[in-house]
Amino acid sequence: MQNLGINVFLKGRNMIRLFEGLMVTARIALIAIIIGSLLGIVLGVVWTSKSKWIRSVCRIYLEMFRIIPILVWLFIMYFGVTTVLNIDLSGEFVSIIVFTLWGAAEMGDIVRGALESLPKHQIESGKAIGLSFWGLYRYILIPQAVRRMLPGAINLATRMVKTTSLVVLIGVIDVIKVGQQIIETSRIEVPTASFWVYGFLFILYFVICYPLSVLSRRLENKWNG
């Protein structure tokens, strides 16, 4: 029986169910990363404002996501807010909201950091060769800011993908939940199912996140070196 453990994937609709679970995970992560990044860019530009008041509001917003664990945010939004407002939201929808807000906060900080770290001298050298305001942004500031924030942004994306594993706790059937269900139902026939299923999940997360983390390290070496 031992050597047939891997067959657990071929039984019934198991493969399709895992794939559906993966789609749920991917949907949450992808939507949150895209919308979160766009909101984050706006937030980051606003954050560089000279107004102390605006800066504090941005800072408090970020700290709320740094101090309070994402799991607690999921519980607050899923159980707390839906009860208080007496509305019915799906776990997946709540997950997307929480991950988007979190992504926006972290992305905002990354964009702010990139913009503020650009040396003043680069701007003056640009002016000294006659560049206009838009020329400065187009040829100097934007290319340099993107280089500075891309490694951090990719890193954030991998963290968000990994953290989606929490959504199972508010009832979302993601790829991990599907895996657990498969282990449960095949426990008698395939005692080694947990090894195969968790091994599969391990490889799955690795395949998604590792290339991203390699890419971010490469870019970092290339541009900061």
Binding site: I129, I140, W223
Partner: peptide
């Protein structure tokens, strides 16, 4: 500025 060139102390070439 195209007629009056300037070079600074901190040799700021565009790093990218």
């Amino acid at each position: 500025r195209q007629h009056i060139g300037m070079v600074f102390q901190n040799y700021e070439l565009f790093s990218h």
